Amino acid sequence: MTHFKSVSYTCPQPGPRLIVLGAVHGNELAGTRGILRVMEELEQGRLKLARGSVTFVPITNPLAYEKQQRAGDRNLNRNLNPTDAPHEFEDLIANWLCPLLAQHNVLLDLHSFQSPGQPFAMVGPENNDGTLEPFKFAHEEEALAIRLGVGRLVDGWLSTYAHGVEARIARMPADASRADLLNADSRYGIGTTEYMRSVGGYAITLECGQHDDPQGPEVAYRAIHNTLAHLGISGEADPIPAKTIEALHIYQVIDKFNADDSFNRTWASFDTLKAGDIIGKRANGEIVAAECDGYILFPNNKAQAGQEWFYLARTTERFAAPG
């Protein structure tokens, strides 16, 4: 299946335009299953729209979905921009998906992750007029995030990725492959949510738990309902905000240099680190240790050389007073 499919439901009363994505990565199916469940409720009349519209994309990357793996030709959630010279199948998706995103003003992107861990949401930057990711809807984004049904929020993605790109460029070989060059492109940090913010909307990535967690589809389903309710698109009551929020800021990405770089243990996202804790070892014997107290995120023992191996995060006070 290599065609693209979206399904839209529009109410006569004007209102927010929401888009919900599933299977941006082909082996992350919680969002797809949650989306299909909500679509069935709409089709059967058990869920009704009060205003605005919602568009569902149950399978955003059909090639990766068909292969039952994260990517088709490359990671769709990197370097997501339209192009006049497509190289990979994901470029063709971008040429279809980016204009579709631009027709909406709110995005909920549903994902899952490889290692064990609890669901969490990733949000964008605070309001700013900077050059990297200028933004003016931080309040709206945070208000939605704390109503999705999870108690952990993470920010700092794009700024951290930009610093990681600088490091990759510094060690780039003269005979770098196209994959190496993409990994060292500052635009390669731009995924669905970053693109949505760049065209004037706001967006949240919801990580629904580990890939095979049977509760993942329920997390996705509940988040879709909560989003529709909070935006006033459905007639359901606005969800109560989370009473407490665990808030983390990503500040560093560590790449694999060699396919034989290895962790010293099985890590899970949000495992705590103390300064000096050994995380892994490079193929050349160099020890990789935590420089300060914090947390490990997205540990990926299957990462290829030149790709993200894991991220480091620390606590932030940004979401200390949800409401």
Rank of each mutant, 00 (worst) to 15 (best):
M1D: 10
M1I: 07
K5H: 14
K5T: 10
S6K: 13
S6Q: 11
P12M: 03
P12A: 03
P14M: 08
G15K: 00
V20D: 02
V20H: 06
L21A: 03
V24K: 10
H25P: 09
G26A: 11
E28L: 04
A30G: 14
G31V: 00
R33D: 12
R33N: 13
I35E: 05
L36P: 03
L36E: 13
M39G: 04
L42V: 10
Q44N: 14
Q44Y: 02
S53I: 05
V54W: 14
F56I: 13
N61W: 11
P62M: 07
R70E: 05
A71H: 12
N75C: 07
L80C: 12
P86G: 01
P86C: 02
A94I: 10
N95K: 13
W96S: 05
L97V: 09
L97P: 08
C98W: 15
L100Y: 10
L100P: 11
A102F: 03
V106S: 05
L107Y: 00
L108G: 05
D109P: 03
H111D: 04
F113S: 04
F113Q: 04
S115G: 07
G117K: 03
F120V: 01
A121M: 06
P125M: 10
N128Y: 10
G130H: 06
T131K: 13
L132Q: 11
L132V: 13
A138C: 04
E140D: 14
E142R: 08
A143E: 10
A143K: 14
L144I: 01
I146T: 14
G149H: 02
G149D: 03
G149Q: 04
G149I: 05
L153G: 05
G164K: 03
E166G: 15
R168N: 08
I169L: 15
I169Y: 04
P173I: 09
R178Y: 12
D180K: 07
L182G: 03
N183W: 11
R197Q: 03
G200H: 01
G200Y: 08
Y202V: 02
A203N: 07
T205L: 14
E207R: 00
C208K: 05
D212W: 05
P214W: 05
V219K: 00
Y221D: 07
R222D: 06
I224C: 12
H225E: 06
H225P: 06
T227E: 01
T227H: 01
A229H: 07
L231E: 04
L231K: 03
I233S: 03
G235S: 12
E236P: 07
D238F: 09
I245H: 00
I250W: 05
I250Y: 04
Y251M: 03
Y251V: 03
N258P: 06
D260G: 00
S262G: 12
S262L: 10
W267Q: 06
A268G: 13
D271P: 13
T272C: 13
K274T: 06
D277P: 09
A283W: 00
I287K: 08
A290M: 07
D293Q: 04
Y295G: 00
F298N: 11
N301V: 09
Q304T: 09
Q304W: 12
A305F: 06
G306Q: 06
E308R: 15
W309C: 07
L312S: 07
L312W: 08
L312T: 11
T316Q: 10
T316C: 12
T316G: 09
F319G: 00
A320R: 15
P322C: 02
